[in-house]
């Protein structure tokens, strides 16, 4: 019995969220006195897979089937189910990403497993129960969930576990062939269209985020947000009304009806702090609010605040970051 970890790769590198997942899986394995094996999906390089040893992974399985480079729901599901069978894995850990969560729900039916998505902590395994803590009510609460099935699947929320780096440790990379057939690729995408991200930082993966609301007045002022984001190597986000009127793309919309994020730092510029917005960001480790209204509700949820005009404050912050670097 081992723990199987699903590792997503892109352009040869293991995604940051998958380093967190690998760490999580290795720690669960240690709790249970077993080892963690990874199955890699996407475009991976041998060297980056071997480096998963740093997160505590013993062995990495990698199927070189070229059609597995892009996400295909059915094929990924079968690949992972086959790996789980070979490794006799009772626990599968994935990222709570659009790939991980989609595959996780399919696998849970195939393998008759208990599934928890949006998991934020290592499991508690005392007293014969297996309990995970997960985010619920769109960031407004947590729930402890008992996974009562013999098999368990856990999708770990991004940025909730710190990736471990045990420099120099390597994992064994083993060839693996799930013998996928053409039929498994029937739901392959016709086309994949990637969008350019500010400074190349993907919002769901970002450790630092600079976000703008209606107080930014219009899309022509977003360079102020982007300049600070670039200086910090941060991702950019926005409030719902901003994406509703197309000042910014929809994938930047955070909140109860957008995405929930938990970066180390969230800087809110000209955002009032409505309850639906806060839900999406209140698990950020540090929150900074810049708003000209001292009564803005966001200040109640903030660690640091500046009562002031964004058009005056943002350039000063960008200059201060550049001066530091």
């Amino acid at each position: 019995m081992s723990v199987l970890v699903v590792v997503e790769c892109d352009k040869g590198e293991v995604k940051k969220s998958s380093l967190e997942v690998a760490t999580y899986g290795a720690q669960v394995a240690a709790q249970l006195g077993t080892t963690a094996t990874a199955i890699a999906v996407g475009e991976a390089s041998e060297a980056s897979l071997a480096k998963l040893g740093e997160q505590g992974i013993a062995k990495v399985l990698y199927d070189r089937e070229p059609r597995l480079k892009d996400f295909v729901n059915n094929a990924y599901t079968k690949l992972i189910a086959t790996a789980a069978g070979q490794e006799q894995a009772k626990i599968i850990v994935l990222a709570n990403s659009n790939i991980g969560a989609a595959v996780g729900s399919r696998l849970s039916v195939r393998l008759r497993a208990s599934l928890a998505t949006n998991v934020v902590e290592l499991p508690k395994t005392d007293g014969g129960r297996f309990v995970v803590k997960r985010g619920a009510f769109s960031g407004k609460a947590f729930s402890d969930v008992v996974l009562s099935g013999e098999r368990k699947i856990i999708a770990v929320k991004k940025n909730s576990i710190e990736a471990q780096h045990d420099a120099g440790k390597t994992a064994e990379v083993a060839a693996f062939a799930a013998q996928l057939a053409d039929a498994d690729f029937a739901d392959a995408p016709q086309q994949v269209v990637m969008q350019e991200q500010t400074g190349g930082v993907l919002l769901p993966e970002a450790e630092l985020v600079v976000s703008g609301g209606r107080g930014m007045k219009g899309p022509e002022n977003w360079h102020l947000i982007e300049d600070l984001a670039k200086a910090l190597h941060a991702g950019t986000a926005c409030s719902k009304p901003v994406s509703d009127v197309d000042w910014r793309p929809h994938h930047e919309h955070v909140g109860q009806t957008g995405i929930t994020i938990s970066p180390n730092l969230y800087i809110a510029c000209g955002i009032s702090g409505a309850i639906q917005h806060l839900a999406g960001v209140n698990s950020s480790k540090v929150i900074v609010v810049i708003n000209k209204d001292p009564e803005a509700p966001f200040f109640k949820a903030a660690d640091y605040g500046i009562v002031g005009d964004v058009f005056d404050v943002l350039p000063k912050l960008t200059a201060a970051v550049k001066a530091l670097n």
């Binding site: 849970s108 008759r112 497993a113 208990s114 599934l115 928890a116 129960r129 309990v131 803590k133 619920a136 960031g139 407004k140 609460a141 947590f142 729930s143 402890d144 969930v145 008992v146 996974l147 009562s148 099935g149 209140n282 698990s283 929150i287 609010v289 200040f299 109640k300 949820a301 903030a302 660690d303 640091y304 605040g305 500046i306 009562v307 002031g308 005009d309 005056d312 404050v313 000063k316 912050l317 200059a319 201060a320 001066a323």
Partner: peptide, 25 residues
């Protein structure tokens, strides 16, 4: 196959530390 054992609310923030806009850096 799953049961909720318990709910919890996120920890409360300590309170905001305000920095003067003149001194934003």
């Amino acid at each position: 196959r799953t049961q909720v054992a318990e709910f919890a609310l996120p920890p409360k923030k300590q309170g905001v530390k305000l920095i003067d806009a003149e001194n934003a850096g």
